[in-house]
């Protein structure tokens, strides 16, 4: 057992071990984003669809499902962030004296602002949770609607109300742009770090990453734009 622990601590202490965990937790978050976006897009299918979806999430496994998901996501986010901060600090320490003349050969802009986009997304997630989950400073929690004869949380009304406020929509869109940037590097990078990329597959992964980032951007931003600009549901 101690040998196992020793292996694990060596793994966690190594640069590749940390990166592998960042990639794995990133993969969890990437998959979550897709599910979350598909769920959100149900808003365009009308109030009942999204409210039903919201109710399903709330009551899955007698209400335990959502907590399992939340804990899983929380762990992923924490591991992802703690390790990347640690890695970034090591990276900064690895070059004490900066270059007098800076040049970049092929590193993408996205790849160079990962920590910035990541931390902004973290700030957004906190805001987003306070806004739509904890309902801090708003009364979205009290929105109720009758669905199939049952009293459920009116997610539809909450979303419409949330994005009818311009600053929230703008912050949301900015966060989505940075998320898109983050994914633009992160998704293909994940394949490389997990050791799945080869000379031939890497360009494919890069295209998948860009397409995925664009999909998340367009999908998620369509909601505030539809609501604020095109008055969807208002």
């Amino acid at each position: 057992m101690s040998a196992l622990l020793k292996s694990f601590s060596t793994f966690l202490g190594s640069s590749i071990g940390k990166k592998l965990l960042v990639a794995l937790t990133g993969a969890v978050l990437v998959l979550f984003l897709l599910g979350h976006m598909i769920g959100n897009l149900l808003i365009f299918a009308g109030p009942d669809a999204i409210n039903e979806y919201g109710h399903f999430l709330q009551t899955m496994l007698h209400g335990g499902g959502v907590w399992i998901a939340r804990i899983g996501l929380l762990v992923s986010v924490v591991v992802h962030i703690v390790l990347t901060i640690q890695l970034t600090r090591e990276n900064r320490a690895a070059r004490t004296e900066r270059y007098g003349y800076n040049a970049t050969l092929q590193a993408s802009k996205s790849s160079r602002i990962m920590i910035l986009s990541g931390l902004t997304i973290l700030a957004f997630i906190i805001y987003h949770l306070l806004h739509f989950t904890v309902h801090a400073g708003n009364n979205y929690g009290t929105y109720q609607v009758i669905l199939h004869g049952e009293n459920v949380h009116d997610v539809y009304k909450m979303v419409i109300a949330g994005f009818s406020w311009l600053p929230a929509s703008i912050f949301y869109i900015i966060a989505m742009l940075l998320l898109c940037s983050h994914l633009g590097h992160g998704v293909s990078s994940m394949f490389q770090t997990l050791g799945l990329a080869t000379e031939r597959t890497r360009p494919i992964y890069e295209k998948i990453g860009s397409a995925y980032a664009a999909l998340i951007l367009i999908g998620n931003c369509s909601i505030p734009i539809a609501i604020y600009v095109f008055h969807y549901g208002r």
Binding site: S15, K18, K19, L87, E90, N91, R92, A93, A94, R95, T104, L105, Q106, A107, S108, S111, R112, M114, H185, S188, S189, F191, Q192, T193, G195, L196, A197, T198, E199, R202
Partner: peptide, 23 residues
């Protein structure tokens, strides 16, 4: 430092070693 998959190394390598080796 740690690799962040930016592939600057491959571009600067005088022998063009591919980052596939990193994977």
């Amino acid at each position: 430092g740690n690799c962040t998959n930016q592939y600057e190394c491959e571009a600067a390598c005088p022998k063009g070693i591919s980052v596939r080796w990193i994977a």
